[in-house]
Design a protein around this nucleic acid. Structure first.
Lengths: 230, 230
DNA sequence: ATCTTACCATACCGATCGGTATGATGCGAA
DNA sequence: TTCGCATCATACCGATCGGTATGGTAAGAT
């Protein structure tokens, strides 16, 4: 375990076949063949499923290859090594999520409580998907081994949502908040922690709690900030 | 990986030397010798450090033995196998935490905001300890492989704190809450998610946020529930 | 028709894994 | 003094790990 460098990893800077090709070719795009692109996507799918199920250390390249219906060498012709595969696969899933997520709230010059409900519902709905639960668990579990992934996650999901809420708070006059950013963190912190506790830590089997009750409570808190209107 | 049972794990029901002794002796206590107890605690310490650092799959029994200053056989004379060692070590750490934690709030018939501040400070202070951060990360990361541990965690930490807050809310008349349990979850959800985001997902290096601001915001929310007193 | 390319199957590499076997050493209780 | 016991050191077990090598096959481009 992480002792001496065994000469196997002394290769270090070695490049993938495809990367070499890209390096020498004139145009930037490698122009993968159809079948090659299909294999690559099979690998990515299998790697995702395997990493999210078993974690980085628990997943083996043999199993990934088997699930992808591909020989191990094919994986190594597309990805440099296990770490690279993990990083690329998780990172691309991370940015995928945000693209499908931040579209709905666009269509809203709705009142603040409605916007907040929509955001909460979006987060809650996401956590109905078993794969997303595993994704979050993996992101947290491997946050020490792969801190860049955690930072990417923060960058493309946490940060935009917080910013969105703060903007919405500042853009309206019905409710007055002394510290909008703090309240935004209260809001998404509550929702996210609920998902974590209920779905990842198996709280729903031990301390079940209705998400709607939480959202209602949060909206009630917003309502307490209504400016005295006459 | 999790394929056929390789005959190695067919032993299954095998018992530890010490468990056998306990089974045959008259009294329930095995009466470990002094040196034996010391070895055991060395093993537990090393196992904790190693598991929290590298996760269950990433940690190797060889490394645990080396760090404990003990031969591998000694570990296997105290613990049945790797899974058992992990379970016992993490479970005992879990219950240890709660014992040192829930003592302070006893001395309080203080007003609600003071009590809540104390609880928040306790949670926040805990997350100044690097080992506790790793503990939480491990608990989440292995929650699928070891769901019983996650449930134990919920049982001895989350649940009591929630209950405590709900009791305090109901025991006073200065502030009126429609749904005390929901508010309790808002409160600890906010604090816990802050710790998770800042310390485990490395948010403090990307989106730093002052915990005091959060607590102030939460207390301000409490203050909004003050009954109209004249 | 030749050549390249990506894939396949299979087998191999050294290292490490979880766990066990053997046999020696030292120590407290009888 | 003898015995039992926990630990030691060392070496071993089969399995699996991440990664590579070899050599063959099929398809598309020239």
């Amino acid at each position: 375990m992480m002792k001496k460098s065994t000469g196997r990893q002394a290769k270090a800077q070695q490049k993938t076949r495809r990367e070499l090709k890209k390096f020498w070719s004139d145009d930037g795009e490698p122009e993968l063949s159809e079948v090659s692109r299909r294999k690559r996507s099979q690998i990515i799918d299998a790697a995702l499923e395997t990493f999210l199920e078993l974690g980085y250390e628990g997943a083996s390249m043999n199993l990934v290859a088997e699930r992808a219906g591909v020989i191990k060498q094919t994986i190594y012709s597309h990805f440099q090594d296990k770490q690279t595969l993990f990083r690329e696969v998780i990172a691309s899933l991370t940015v995928d999520y945000v693209q499908n997520a931040l579209k709905k709230p666009e269509l809203s010059n709705q009142p603040l409580p409605v916007v907040l409900r929509m955001i909460a519902e979006t987060i809650l709905a996401r956590h109905q998907d078993a794969q997303h639960i595993r994704f979050v668990r993996t992101m947290i579990g491997e946050a020490e081994r792969f801190p860049e992934l955690a930072k990417l996650f923060t960058d493309v999901t946490v940060h935009p949502v917080l910013t969105l809420i703060v903007e919405r708070i500042k853009a309206q006059k019905t409710y007055k908040f002394d510290d909008p950013e703090a309240f935004a963190r209260v809001f998404i912190g509550t929702v996210v922690n609920h998902c974590l506790q209920q779905h990842i830590l198996h709280g729903k089997e031990l301390l079940p709690f209705n998400a709607a009750r939480l959202v209602d409570e949060l909206v009630a808190l917003v309502e307490l900030h209504r400016v005295a209107s006459r």
